[in-house]
């Protein structure tokens, strides 16, 4: 099976501080990977490197056959194929939910407005906030905003979805509605890399678990094995604290 994302010996520094150390990672199409680890372990940085919101200094990152490097001309094209959902939603507050969803398809993918709106409504229905389409982000609850952000990313019809702690900024009762959407998405066959502390979600959808600490991948295992029989002591400690 071909690999849609490949990371080889990726190293990254913030000034002198090394945040990623020799990261090797391969993701096949339709695979779901959950990354967990203590804060500051580099997991957010890792997925931000995959659509080059952060630049790595050493190693290779290949996304859908294109290597990300300093001189990558069509970085926008790669980014259009990789959807991203942020901890802070990052919806565009000056646009309605519908416009949030149609803006990039219209201007980046050059979709006709009408078609873009159809796609947007389809995705908003999928995340169950089609009735909020004409409201502004500021009028929605956190959970609704995050679902709108997921719909916005889906409107670009990405091959890969990256989730950067999508539920960490939400009130407890809103977490479920967002996770439900993500589970639904996973069952639909999307390739997903999720940074999260929601272990219940991980157990339900993840093919592989990755545990990171201090910029290194400490453990990579099938989900069941990871939870039932973790190999490294660091993973065991982490799991005992979080579960």
């Amino acid at each position: 099976m071909g690999k849609i994302i490949e990371l080889k010996k990726v190293n990254k520094w913030f000034d002198k501080f090394q945040v990623l150390k020799d990261i090797d990672l391969e993701v096949a199409p339709q695979e779901k990977i959950v990354i967990c680890g203590p804060s500051g372990s580099g997991k957010s940085t890792l997925i931000r490197c995959i659509n080059r919101l952060e630049e790595h200094q050493e190693g290779n990152i290949i996304v859908d056959g294109t290597e990300l490097a300093e001189n990558t001309k069509n970085i926008e094209k790669i980014r259009a194929e990789v959807g991203m959902v942020f901890q802070q939603f990052n919806l565009f507050p000056h646009l309605s939910i519908l416009d949030n969803c149609t803006l990039a398809p219209i201007w980046v993918k050059k979709l006709p407005k009408k078609e873009a709106e159809e796609v947007a409504m389809k995705n908003l229905t999928r995340v169950q906030i089609d009735d909020q389409a004409f409201k502004f982000p500021g009028q929605l609850s956190g959970g609704q905003q995050q679902r709108a952000a997921i719909a916005r990313a889906l409107c670009m019809e990405p091959k890969i979805m990256l989730f950067d702690e999508p539920t960490s900024a939400l009130d407890p009762e809103m977490i479920k509605e967002v996770l439900d959407v993500m589970v639904d998405l996973a069952k639909g066959g999307m390739t997903m890399i999720v940074v999260t502390h929601e272990m219940g979600f991980a157990k339900e959808v993840a093919d592989y678990m990755i545990f990171m600490d201090e910029g290194k991948i400490v453990e990579r295992a099938k989900t069941k094995e990871f939870f039932e029989n973790p190999k490294s002591d660091r993973t065991k400690l982490f799991l005992s604290q979080i579960l």
């Binding site: 659509n51 919101l53 926008e76 094209k77 980014r79 259009a80 194929e81 990789v82 959807g83 991203m84 942020f86 990052n90 919806l91 565009f92 803006l103 990039a104 201007w107 980046v108 993918k109 952000a149 916005r152 990313a153 670009m156």
Partner: peptide
């Protein structure tokens, strides 16, 4: 806001 715009391929 910058990151969201970039991540959508703008």
């Amino acid at each position: 806001q910058y990151e969201a715009a970039k991540s959508l391929g703008m």
